[in-house]
Design a protein around this nucleic acid. Structure first.
Length: 229
DNA sequence: GCAGTGATTTGCT
DNA sequence: GCAAATCACTGCG
């Protein structure tokens, strides 16, 4: 009980201060933008307050115009009603339903008209931990990594749905959903193959903050390489 | 390990 | 049109 109260106070005391990432940040290819998102804050402004987490794991999904074919990407076969957001301007949220019960959130990137997306796979909870636990249907003393470690979990924790958030512009000042650079410095970035997919399983397009406890998936997945940004 | 769940797309008529 | 296959997941055993 004592511990939960302490977490609640420290989270509430924190302010989200930093620079809203501009449109130009997202105008490059997914494999270039993806590692740059690590360490940034994903913030959802709700009527109940702010819920935010630090991005610790992402995956790049390449568009059909890219040199490397990516059959795992939703945009692989061209635009459809579901994936049209990916073919629009960069810096927008592409939220879709999967397996009948989960949502996943991508950030669109590359220039307008060229598809590209980055799946946000895991966050480190930073602000609104009690609300995250409520949204996830967990007790307030649930382990932090159960809140936002996994693409479905983080959407549930932040209260993101396709109906309410698909197509939102993340670069607008008044957007309820934003990505903010608070100058947090990260150490090592590990590059691995993507997980949870059937096609194009060999492409090294998953980026994680190396060793971070909130990263999802198998702990023993060997990195293809590690670099310091 | 695998069941649960439903939207989405593809491939037939 | 309609049926079948697919799916970037999670939670339970």
């Amino acid at each position: 009980m004592e511990k939960e109260a302490k977490i609640g106070r420290s989270a509430a005391a924190r302010q989200i201060k930093g620079r809203l990432l501009p449109r130009s940040f997202y105008e490059a290819s997914p494999e270039l933008v993806a590692p740059c998102l690590l360490g940034k804050l994903l913030a959802h402004h709700t009527s109940r307050g702010v819920i935010a987490g630090r991005i610790v794991e992402v995956e790049a999904y390449l568009g059909p115009h890219h040199n490397t074919p990516d059959p795992a990407s939703h945009s692989y076969r061209g635009p459809t009603p579901r994936n049209q957001v990916m073919f629009g301007p960069p810096g927008h949220a592409y939220v879709y339903a999967i397996y009948g019960m989960h949502f996943c959130m991508n950030v669109t990137c590359d220039v307008d008209g060229v598809a590209g997306g980055i799946l946000i796979r895991a966050l480190e909870p930073v602000v609104g931990l009690h609300q995250m636990a409520r949204n996830r249907g967990l007790g307030v003393n649930a382990a932090q990594r159960l809140l936002t470690s996994g693409p479905g979990r983080l959407c549930q924790a932040l209260g993101l749905t396709r109906e309410a958030h698909n197509g939102l512009d993340l670069t607008k000042r008044n957007s309820p959903l934003q990505i903010i650079d608070d100058k947090n410095v990260i150490c090592d970035v590990a590059v691995t193959v993507r997980i949870g997919i059937r096609n194009a399983v060999d492409l090294p397009l998953r980026f994680t903050i190396s060793g971070h406890t909130c990263v999802s998936g198998p702990r023993n997945l060997a990195p293809k390489r590690i670099f310091t940004p």
